Simulated assay, not measured.
Amino acid sequence: MATRTRRSQRRTEALSRERIVEAAVELLDAAGESGLTFRALTERLATGPGAVYWHVANKDELLAAATEGVVTTALTEAAVPPEDSPQEGVRAVALGLSGAIEEHPWLATQLALQLARNPWGTVTARIFESLGRRVRALGVPESGWFTATSALLHYILGAAGQNAANATAPGTGAERAEFLGAVSAAWKDLDPDDYPFTRAVADQMREHDDREQFLAGIDFVLTGITTLHPPGAPPRTPPAGT
Results as ranks from 00 to 15, higher is better:
residue 68 E to I: 12
residue 96 G to W: 09
residue 71 V to D: 02
residue 92 A to N: 02
residue 112 A to S: 13
residue 68 E to T: 04
residue 123 V to Q: 04
residue 72 T to D: 14
residue 90 V to Y: 02
residue 84 D to C: 15
residue 104 H to R: 09
residue 125 A to V: 06
residue 104 H to P: 09
residue 88 E to L: 14
residue 71 V to L: 03
residue 95 L to E: 10
residue 118 N to I: 00
residue 80 V to Q: 11
residue 88 E to Q: 15
residue 72 T to E: 15
residue 118 N to Q: 14
residue 129 E to C: 01
residue 63 L to P: 00
residue 85 S to Q: 09
residue 129 E to L: 05
residue 119 P to Y: 00
residue 95 L to T: 11
residue 126 R to H: 13
residue 128 F to M: 15
residue 107 L to T: 07
residue 117 R to Y: 07
residue 73 T to G: 10
residue 67 T to Y: 07
residue 129 E to P: 04
residue 98 S to V: 00
residue 97 L to N: 07
residue 115 L to N: 12
residue 80 V to R: 08
residue 106 W to D: 01
residue 114 Q to V: 03
residue 129 E to F: 05
residue 106 W to L: 08
residue 89 G to I: 14
residue 113 L to H: 09
residue 109 T to C: 12
residue 89 G to W: 03
residue 74 A to Y: 07
residue 82 P to T: 00
residue 96 G to V: 04
residue 131 L to S: 01
residue 121 G to K: 07
residue 89 G to S: 04
residue 129 E to H: 14
residue 108 A to L: 10
residue 70 V to L: 03
residue 95 L to R: 15
residue 106 W to Q: 09
residue 116 A to N: 06
residue 78 A to Q: 05
residue 87 Q to G: 15
residue 104 H to S: 11
residue 76 T to N: 02
residue 65 A to G: 03
residue 90 V to L: 00
residue 123 V to H: 13
residue 105 P to W: 04
residue 106 W to F: 08
residue 92 A to Y: 11
residue 121 G to Q: 05
residue 84 D to W: 05
residue 65 A to L: 13
residue 72 T to N: 14
residue 114 Q to S: 13
residue 127 I to T: 05
residue 73 T to Y: 10
residue 100 A to L: 06
residue 97 L to K: 07
residue 86 P to I: 07
residue 65 A to V: 03
residue 87 Q to H: 14
residue 99 G to M: 06
residue 87 Q to C: 12
residue 97 L to R: 02
residue 73 T to K: 12
residue 89 G to Q: 08
residue 131 L to I: 01
residue 74 A to P: 00
residue 122 T to M: 02
residue 128 F to V: 12
residue 128 F to I: 13
residue 74 A to S: 02
residue 80 V to F: 13
residue 68 E to Y: 09
residue 79 A to V: 15
residue 129 E to S: 07
residue 76 T to M: 03
residue 124 T to I: 04
residue 91 R to P: 12
residue 94 A to K: 08
residue 112 A to G: 14
residue 126 R to K: 03
residue 108 A to S: 12
residue 75 L to Q: 06
residue 69 G to M: 01
residue 64 A to L: 08
residue 103 E to Y: 10
